[in-house]
Amino acid sequence: MAEENSIFYTSGSVSKEAPGDSPGVYVNASFTIHLPTAVEESLRRGVSLYFTTEFSLLQKRWYWTDKNIASRSIRRKLSYSLLTRKYFLGGEGLSQSFASLEEALSVLGSVRHWRVASPRAVSGPFQDYSARIRIQLDKSRLPRPLQISSTDWDMTSGWVSLPISPTVSAP
């Protein structure tokens, strides 16, 4: 059951975009999300699931703990409507509907062109920085009985290191 109850990292990168409308440090990442049977059944019965995507950019320091340069998070809500028989994914002021759970989970597991820091946040060679990301189910947003009932609800990718493009360093 633990294999079924997981979020897997598939790909990702951190890059610095060229100056334009909104220059900065951007993240792209993909995760594969598998819902356990009990979680999927609860979703279809009206329990909304909240997932949080967290990102941290750290500057490596040999003499002290790494310095946190930027931290960002996004919370998304996945729900199912019994009336329309569609899945809804909302967050950051946007809402999308999907005919299948697989489509909704695919979009939920994708982070595209997410601005996480200003262009001035990174200075020096890219080897001096590390980036990490994770997605997890926010159990605190579940109904109280589900928060304590089962390990099926412990869903997280864990922290994953992201590769940083060499062009992230400032000239």
Results as ranks from 00 to 15, higher is better:
136 Q>A: 10
23 P>H: 10
135 I>D: 02
104 A>D: 02
59 Q>R: 15
11 S>F: 09
74 I>M: 10
88 F>H: 14
91 G>W: 04
160 V>E: 06
136 Q>G: 09
89 L>V: 08
106 S>H: 13
108 L>I: 09
84 T>M: 10
11 S>L: 08
13 S>F: 06
80 Y>M: 02
51 F>W: 13
83 L>M: 13
73 S>Q: 14
74 I>F: 01
108 L>T: 07
112 R>L: 03
149 S>A: 14
29 A>M: 09
2 A>M: 10
168 V>Q: 02
107 V>N: 01
70 A>S: 15
18 A>T: 15
16 K>F: 02
91 G>P: 03
123 S>N: 13
71 S>N: 11
99 A>E: 12
57 L>H: 01
15 S>F: 05
75 R>Q: 11
80 Y>W: 03
24 G>D: 13
10 T>C: 02
120 R>P: 00
105 L>R: 09
99 A>I: 03
112 R>N: 05
133 I>G: 00
126 F>D: 07
37 T>Q: 14
134 R>V: 08
86 K>L: 13
170 A>G: 01
124 G>N: 09
77 K>H: 02
117 A>G: 11
25 V>D: 01
58 L>V: 09
133 I>M: 05
52 T>N: 06
133 I>D: 02
65 T>L: 12
54 E>L: 09
56 S>P: 00
70 A>F: 13
131 A>G: 15
6 S>R: 12
158 G>V: 07
107 V>G: 00
139 K>D: 05
154 D>H: 09
102 E>N: 11
80 Y>H: 06
68 N>V: 08
65 T>D: 13
156 T>H: 02
45 R>D: 15
110 S>C: 05
10 T>E: 07
34 H>V: 12
22 S>G: 11
73 S>K: 13
120 R>Y: 11
86 K>I: 00
85 R>H: 15
40 E>D: 11
56 S>M: 14
76 R>Q: 15
5 N>G: 10
68 N>K: 14
157 S>D: 04
60 K>Q: 11
76 R>G: 00
145 P>L: 08
31 F>H: 07
144 R>Y: 07
132 R>G: 10
79 S>A: 12
98 F>N: 02
99 A>N: 10
61 R>G: 08
154 D>W: 08
77 K>W: 00
9 Y>S: 04
170 A>F: 05
122 V>D: 01
126 F>L: 04
72 R>M: 12
22 S>D: 15
47 V>L: 03
89 L>W: 05
99 A>G: 03
19 P>G: 05
10 T>A: 04
156 T>K: 03
165 S>C: 02
145 P>E: 09
112 R>Y: 06
1 M>R: 13
160 V>F: 01
104 A>S: 14
159 W>R: 05
79 S>N: 04
81 S>T: 10
48 S>M: 05
66 D>G: 06
21 D>F: 10
167 T>F: 03
66 D>I: 06
33 I>L: 14
164 I>G: 01
21 D>H: 10
151 T>H: 13
147 Q>K: 13
84 T>Y: 09
67 K>G: 03
13 S>I: 08
5 N>A: 15
139 K>P: 00
123 S>V: 11
140 S>A: 15
14 V>P: 03
133 I>T: 11
14 V>Q: 03
5 N>T: 11
12 G>H: 03
74 I>W: 03
64 W>G: 02
107 V>M: 05
95 S>G: 11
78 L>C: 01
5 N>E: 07
114 W>V: 05
164 I>L: 11
47 V>Y: 00
18 A>K: 14
165 S>M: 00
